[in-house]
Amino acid sequence: MTVTSDPASRVAKRPNRLFKNLMAKLASIPMILTALVVFVGGTTWTIVYSFTGSRMLPKTNWVGLDQYERLWSSDRWIISIKNLGIYGSFSMILTLVLGFCLAACLDRKIRFESAFRTIFLYPFALSFVVTGLAWQWILNPEFGVQSVVRGWGWETFTFNPLNDPDTVIFGILIAGLWQGTGLIMCIMLAGLRGIDEDIWKAAKVDGIGTIKTYVVVIIPMMRPVFITSLVLIAAGIIKLYDLVVAQTGGGPGLASEVPAKYVIEYMFRAQNLGQGFAASTMMLCSVVIILIPWAYLEFGGRKRG
């Protein structure tokens, strides 16, 4: 993660750093161009056209902030943002906690570790569409969990999250967690395996309990692993789309709409590119608002130190 060069190269005799590692720099030119044209260029283009009244085709009839005004007065967008907030915060916390706990359990040298690891990681091999469909059936009251429990004798048991506007986002959260926790567990497990055995021995000598060792010693040591997990989970949250489409289609009503779905539907179904661009620009803004302070803390602080 450190980007600062080591002191040895700074005092090197050849000052022209442009030609250092020339072949490596040549080799990365295609990627740099791709990044500039596709990411920076595409993003700029989208932002510029979000100030136009483009419909099916991009046009340069400027309308100022009209698209944004309409966006923020749209019920559907507000619901989408709220849903993403709920899904995002729960998903972030629960995935980290569950992923770490599962990894810690597997790390206690249990029997059949690899079997459990495979079981936990397996959902990650399924696409969101399959996950969504499977959980749509599991949560369906007629032949899912509810009917199974009722079959056991609890006649009044009710578990129908997907058809209730207040709980539908948690139904999606369950599927999201089921799918994503395994990967985070594996990353955490790799991190735990990287911890030196001697640390454990030292902690034992000092008489620190197992759980306290995890919380006070091991977790701080796993900071880079947590950062990686955080980025992976955050990316998964922002692009949440296919799971919703497969599981609920945004319903009941608009109760499980998410921003990415708004963007796609307004760009293509409603044939209103300007509105879709405005929504995707707002999504970008939210990412940037979270990313910049974090990047500053992560990278900026170290340079000064």
Binding site: R55, S74, D75, R76, P165, G250, G251, P252, G253, L254, A255, E265, Y266, R269, A270, Q271, N272, Q275
Partner: peptide, 19 residues
Amino acid sequence: LSADTQTQIEDLMAQFWSG
């Protein structure tokens, strides 16, 4: 109606009927 207006009305109806 344009596709844009249709989508807005469909959104409203989805919200109205389900709540």
